[in-house]
Simulated scan of single mutants.
Amino acid sequence: MASRPMTEVATGFTYTEGPRWHEGRLWFVDFYTHSVNAVNADGSIEQVCTVEHQPSGLGWLPDGRMLVVSMKDRKVLRRETDGSLVEHADISEHCHGHANDMVVAANGQAYVGEFGFDLMGGADHEHGVVVLVDTDGTSRVAAEGLSFPNGMCISPDGRTLYVNELFGNRVSRFDIEPDGTLGPRQDFASFGDLGDEPSVEKRLAACTIAPDGQALDAEGAIWIADCVNQRAVRLAEGGTILDEVSTAPLGVFAVALGGDDGRTLFLSVAPDFDEAKRSAAREAKVLSTRVDVPHAGRP
């Protein structure tokens, strides 16, 4: 595993997630302070807004307004030009757990994953869905039968959606149809089918990878946050591991590529993803390191 110098970008948070490079700044959310944050060029951190029901995935509409997932009430909010947050879409009818990560396409359509079950409440694993939110706020299920759909990216040509399945031991891909709907699920990288095993602990124990957040690069490889193995992994299609970055002793739960040349890998790290422990502490960070191949696609 390559040893790379790490830089602390942001410290003193509860559980950082959803890093995005946008308009020359790194943006990220912090779950248990309910905040959306942006890192300025001088290293200072601006709290852009707060989301009462816990923020997750971030994205931007073609006109520049920001979308943010509101996890616990299963909505997508929109930040207006005056800074106010309004409801963009209510996707609760499609969700069996918290709403989660999101990627916004160039035309403003958004893809939102959901847990599928009550993870923090200790429920048995159930498969979840990806919800397609149209620009008018209407929504529909775009893909189902996914094991905790999490980090997502869209290819530079806008024709492919990549989805991490956190408890599924795989990264999936879907063709994006002209209307934004998705074709059948295909493997981008699979390390073994875990079937309908209901125990989250057993599923994680059987995983080669536990892919949380992801970032796509210009060679078509995907960086994933392999959250239980304390590493970020660069995967080629088919599952070959091309590169690794260790975050030990911390786990890594999301990644993004950005910086002025797209070659900075940002990593959201914390000791674990236990809600009670993380909400009571300020041990989460965003780190960065340099990689060889720049960012591509969305986000």
Rank of each mutant, 00 (worst) to 15 (best):
M1R: 14
S3N: 14
S3R: 15
E8R: 09
A10P: 09
F13Y: 15
T16Q: 01
E17F: 01
E17A: 03
P19K: 02
P19M: 03
W21N: 03
E23N: 08
F31Q: 04
Y32P: 01
T33H: 01
V36P: 02
V36M: 01
A38M: 02
N40V: 00
A41S: 14
G43Y: 08
S44G: 13
E46M: 01
V51F: 05
E52H: 06
Q54D: 07
P55C: 02
S56Y: 02
G57F: 05
G57H: 05
P62A: 09
L67N: 02
R74F: 00
D82M: 08
D82G: 08
E87L: 12
D90Q: 09
D90H: 02
S92C: 00
E93Y: 00
H94D: 08
H96C: 14
G97S: 10
H98R: 15
H98V: 11
A99T: 12
N100Y: 04
A105K: 02
A106E: 15
G108Y: 07
A110F: 10
V112N: 10
V112S: 12
F115K: 07
F117D: 08
D118M: 05
D118Y: 03
G121I: 10
G122D: 00
G128C: 04
G128R: 08
G128D: 13
V131F: 07
D136I: 03
S139D: 15
S139K: 10
V141G: 06
A142F: 07
N150H: 09
G151V: 11
G151L: 13
S155M: 06
R159M: 11
T160H: 00
L161A: 14
Y162H: 13
V163K: 06
E165T: 08
L166I: 04
L166C: 13
F167S: 14
N169D: 12
S172L: 10
F174D: 06
D175G: 07
G183E: 09
R185T: 09
F188E: 04
S190M: 06
G192N: 00
G192Q: 02
L194F: 02
G195D: 13
D196Q: 15
E197F: 00
P198D: 11
S199T: 09
E201I: 11
K202P: 01
K202S: 12
T208Q: 06
I209R: 03
I209L: 03
D212H: 03
Q214P: 00
A215S: 12
L216Q: 10
D217R: 02
E219V: 03
A225H: 10
A225V: 06
D226F: 04
N229E: 07
Q230L: 11
A232R: 13
R234G: 05
A236W: 03
A236V: 00
A236L: 14
G238T: 12
G239V: 11
V245C: 09
A248F: 13
V252D: 08
V255E: 07
G258N: 10
G258K: 08
R263Y: 01
R263P: 00
L267D: 11
A270T: 07
A270S: 15
F273L: 05
A276F: 04
E283L: 15
A284M: 02
K285P: 01
L287R: 11
L287E: 06
S288A: 15
R290W: 07
G297W: 02
P299I: 05
